[in-house]
């Protein structure tokens, strides 16, 4: 759906984007992650037609949106990290204004914005003044505004920044609903735990380059591969120790009462084989888990690490180390 190739943006002596590549498929909920100044907002501004790129191409369904700005406006909805509201304007008037800015008028506009206000849980506030809304409500209103023209691609820049947990939860639920409903969503955020809860794919940008991109499952899987297996044994510790020490995929084993921490480099299948072997040999396994890795850990490792070539899966291309 969205294909970005060789995108470069320079600000005097600073290169914000350096041959940046990105591909987002239809129906993805893509998490766009990176430290401050990595180039996330620059990328988003170029994708939404608010900034000129120095080099590169951006195509949406095969059409070059750097040249066809009308196509961007029709097909992309943009929600920045601020709500951007006017004084002396009611919620429904705010929506009506943006509907008319997208040339949607009259009953069609009314029907559309009431439907959206209902979706973001603001229909009861339609007659309230926008500047009287809480920050969370303003963000939800901003999301409704970004959807007023029913765009195919929704781009959100740090939508949850500054929101309380309840507002974040509500926003996350709405985004999940939109994604289930068929909307392709790109969401940039620092709150990685939330991204890992809702995104189907993520990309990590650092110093203006995409350094990791793949499906969240594959990436977390790879992170987990480096984490130890945690085996809790109720009975048969000695047998378990013998089996583990003899296993070719086991590198180190540490014991802590009923718990065994195993550095295991095998695949999921090999993990299952190991468990089976323990059980067959009468080891009473109470718990057998791969200690979960977090996106935060991965992100920290990548963004502060050296640049080495890393492969997460066959489909994922990565440059730096972790």
């Amino acid at each position: 759906m969205l294909d970005v190739k060789g995108l470069t943006k320079r600000y005097k002596n600073f290169t914000a984007l350096d041959q940046f590549d990105l591909h987002v498929d239809r129906g993805e909920l893509f998490g766009f992650v990176g430290p401050n100044g990595a180039g996330k907002t620059t990328t988003i501004k170029i994708l939404t037609g608010l900034l000129r790129a120095d080099e590169g191409t951006v195509t949406l369904d095969g059409r070059n949106i750097l040249k066809e700005r009308a196509y961007i406006r029709e097909n992309i909805g943009y929600m920045p990290d601020f709500s951007g509201v006017y004084d002396n304007m009611k919620v429904f008037e705010y929506m009506e204004f943006y509907a008319s800015a997208y040339r949607i008028e009259g009953p069609e506009a009314r029907e559309r914005y009431y439907e959206l206000l209902e979706m973001v849980g603001l229909s009861q506030k339609a007659n309230s003044f926008v500047d009287e809304l809480s920050r969370g409500m303003k963000q939800r209103l901003s999301l409704a505004r970004a959807l007023i023209h029913d765009p195919r691609l929704l781009i959100l820049d740090e939508p949850a920044s500054g929101l309380d947990p309840q507002s974040r939860y509500h926003l996350k639920e709405v985004l999940k609903y939109l994604n289930r409903d068929g909307k392709t969503i790109i969401i940039s955020s620092h709150i990685l735990a939330e991204l890992s809860e809702m995104c189907t794919d993520i990309g990590i940008i650092d110093n203006g380059k995409m350094i990791l991109r793949g499906s969240l499952i594959d990436i977390l899987d790879q992170v987990n591969q480096n984490n130890p297996l945690e085996i809790t044994v109720y009975d048969g510790m000695e047998k378990a120790a013998r089996i583990l020490k003899e296993h070719s995929r086991v590198q180190t084993v540490t014991f802590d009462y009923h718990k065994i921490m195993v550095s295991f480099s095998g695949s999921h299948e090999e993990e299952a084989e190991l468990l089976k072997k323990l059980v067959i040999n009468d080891v009473a396994v109470y718990e057998f888990i791969r200690k979960p890795g977090s996106l935060e850990n991965l992100f920290m490792k990548i963004t502060e690490g050296k640049k080495e070539k890393v492969v997460v899966s066959n489909e994922i291309e990565m440059e730096p180390s972790f």
Binding site: T48, L50, R73, P80, G84, V85, Y86, A101, Y102, H149
Partner: peptide, 13 residues
């Protein structure tokens, strides 16, 4: 200053 110019520029206007 209100940060609404970008929002206006991203519409069909």
């Amino acid at each position: 200053e209100r940060q609404t110019l970008d929002l206006l520029m991203s519409t069909k206007m």
